[in-house]
């Protein structure tokens, strides 16, 4: 049943161990969250799984195949999609074009047919346009589709990134702080969207600071501190774990309150 499993993953940045010996697994339709104080190595872990960084130790297994260190576009071909903590939007393109680019693997074709605007090329664009429009409706951005992406608010850009990632029709979706910088209403919308996507059978790996959201939607939580996994399990068990409480109290007491409560 496991779709993605990570085993003994580690990387050092010049002498400093950023992530060490982290392992867990995610099944289709399951939401697994990775939490931990700032600097715990969550984003680094994401970057290793999605091929942005080459892991120095350990393995990433996707659907039974070893995909450790594969380039991000190769992983995308295998159904792995992600969003970014600090937004990687195509600023000079329209909102619709951003979502359309998410369909790249389905719409790409010979460059020559694109240069000559052959019927096959126009057909590919038309299919993508319809699909992207649908996705924008799903994340509530249909009205903004012709606007330049850089003109959207932060919360809207977060949703646009999710739409773009979903356009890939992923089997596993990595979401890096999808609710960061969003207000309560937007957070709830994103929360619903994630639950809905998971229900459709997509495996979801989530990094999020909003503890209420994490506790509410995760089936399984992995806790990182200083690059190491210090606990994992069901939300209720994790929030009572003394090691988790200590890690949070040591660095971020506000969130510790959330985590315990």
């Amino acid at each position: 049943m496991t779709l993605l499993s990570v085993d003994g993953l580690g990387i050092d940045f010049g002498g400093l161990t950023a992530v060490n010996d982290v392992g867990f697994s995610v099944s289709p339709g399951e939401i697994v969250s990775v939490i931990g104080p700032n600097g715990a190595g969550k984003t680094t872990l994401f970057n290793m799984i999605s091929g942005v960084y080459q892991p120095q130790r350990g393995k990433v297994i996707l659907d039974g195949a070893d995909v450790t260190g594969l380039a991000p576009n190769r992983l995308a071909e295998r159904g792995l999609s992600r969003t970014f903590q600090n937004l990687q939007i195509f600023q000079r393109m329209s909102v619709l074009e951003n979502a359309m680019t998410g369909c790249h693997l389905r719409e790409r074709g010979p460059v020559l047919s694109d240069l000559l605007s052959l019927p096959s090329s126009r057909r590919r664009s038309a299919v993508t346009r319809a699909r992207a429009t649908e996705l924008l409706e799903r994340v509530g951005l249909a009205r903004a589709s012709e606007r330049e992406a850089s003109s959207l608010s932060y919360g809207a850009l977060k949703r646009l990134e999710i739409a773009r990632a979903l356009a890939l029709e992923p089997r596993i979706l990595l979401l890096d702080e999808p609710a960061a910088g969003c207000n309560a209403v937007e957070t709830e919308e994103i929360d619903h969207l994630i639950a809905e996507v998971a229900k459709s059978g997509v495996a979801i790996l989530l990094v999020e600071h909003d503890m209420k959201m994490v506790m509410r939607i995760s089936r399984h939580i992995v806790v990182l501190d200083r690059g190491e996994k210090i606990a994992e399990g069901a939300p209720a068990a994790v929030s009572r774990d003394p090691k988790v409480i200590e890690a949070y109290l040591g660095t971020q007491s506000v969130e510790a309150g959330d985590a315990v409560g």
Partner: peptide
């Protein structure tokens, strides 16, 4: 990096 992650 975003282009790569959508498969470009």
């Amino acid at each position: 990096v975003a282009a790569r992650t959508v498969g470009v």
